[in-house]
């Protein structure tokens, strides 16, 4: 709209400052380890964190409506384990069918959560805590003390090794991630449904009065989250060439952390696809970079946690400083 506000936009926006953080981070690591910025390494990072990055999109929507979902990795394990066992016992062969089944399972799991939250008026943290137990339990039940290894998965694991989706350009995992991001970017910015998600999170009561079906939007958002978790169940099974009932345990915190670092508000209404992407990238780069700069692998979690705390605290402090500066400028 206005060109002169561009500079202000960069300094004032969360996304822009994250880009700077990301660049500084990359440069710092590259100095220590010149191979870091190689195309292969970058692709490796993207591939290994695709699951977190995709689920961050769903979590973005959930946080936008002022909710939270901590059941996602249980859904992921349930879906991933189910198709894993199907391949193991040769119930299905086709890779596509595996993805379809896992995604559909995720959608149903998410739908159930959404209905209980939106129509049963159960607090999201409680409902998803319950389903975290339930779906994880289902994953173990499906597994029956077994697991699906590389040999059991057959051609399914080849999906994430090949570049078929982009006609040989880039790894399939990354293609899927990019497609998800493009879809979410368009839906959240340019469609009525996307804007309704923002409206519900910003002021649910007003949304109801504007004629938006708040309960339906909420249900849809949790269903989307579940769908992505299901998709990631298939993806994770393929990427790691194994399906285990405890797969990705407590990674939901990484997903939430990615969103929080990306500037998504826990109170709803605020956050963007770009922010979620950058948050997830920052986390990915950090966990990849730590060993490269000589930090022991066992210290990684500590550093990750400290960074999360530091980012949110810094966020508050800069906000306070900005408020103070505004007050001082007020004419009296």
């Amino acid at each position: 709209m206005e060109k002169k506000s561009l500079w202000k936009k960069i300094t004032g926006s969360r996304e822009a400052s994250l880009v700077i953080v990301l660049i500084v981070l990359c440069i710092a690591v590259t100095i220590k380890s010149p191979n870091f910025m190689s195309a292969q390494n970058i692709l490796e990072i993207l591939k290994n964190n695709a699951v977190i990055m995709i689920m961050a999109l769903g979590m973005l929507c959930v946080l936008l409506i002022g909710g939270i979902d901590i059941s996602i990795t249980s859904t992921l394990a349930f879906a991933g384990m189910t198709i894993g066992m199907m391949y193991k016992y040769n119930k299905i062969e086709s890779t596509f069918l595996g993805f379809l089944i896992a995604t559909a399972m995720g959608a149903v799991c998410g739908l159930l959560i959404g209905v209980i939250i939106a129509y049963g008026k159960v607090m999201p943290i409680i409902a998803t805590m319950g389903f975290m137990y339930i779906y994880r339990g289902f994953a173990y039940l499906v597994a029956q003390d077994q697991w699906a290894g590389a040999d059991a998965l057959g051609s399914f694991k080849d999906f994430t090794l090949s570049n078929s989706l982009s006609f040989g350009l880039i790894n399939n995992t990354i293609t899927v991630t990019v497609i998800c991001y493009i879809i979410f970017f368009i839906v959240l910015k340019w469609t009525k449904f996307g804007r309704s998600i923002y409206a519900v999170g910003s002021n649910a009561e007003a949304a109801e009065i504007s004629g938006i079906n708040v309960a339906a939007i909420k249900t849809a958002v949790y269903t989307i989250m579940g769908t992505l978790a299901g998709l990631c169940g298939a993806l994770a099974t393929s990427v790691y060439a194994s399906a285990q009932p405890n797969m990705q345990t407590s990674k939901e915190m990484d997903v939430i952390a990615a969103c929080v670092i990306g500037g998504v508000s826990m109170n709803g209404g605020r956050g963007s696809v770009l922010g979620a992407l950058l948050g997830a990238l920052v986390l990915s780069v950090i966990s990849k970079a730590l060993p490269l700069v000589g930090i022991n692998a066992i210290a990684q979690n500590t550093i990750k946690g400290v960074i999360i705390v530091a980012v949110i605290v810094l966020n508050v402090l800069t906000q306070r400083m900005m408020d103070k500066a505004n007050l001082e400028n007020r004419e009296m």
Partner: peptide, 25 residues
């Protein structure tokens, strides 16, 4: 930092505390 939901704060410290234990172990 009353502006921050305690959910987020303790999400951060959750990772840190266990991380320190991991280092110590």
């Amino acid at each position: 930092f009353r502006e921050l939901p305690t959910m987020i704060i303790t999400l951060g410290t959750q990772i840190v505390f266990r991380g320190i234990a991991e280092i110590a172990l």
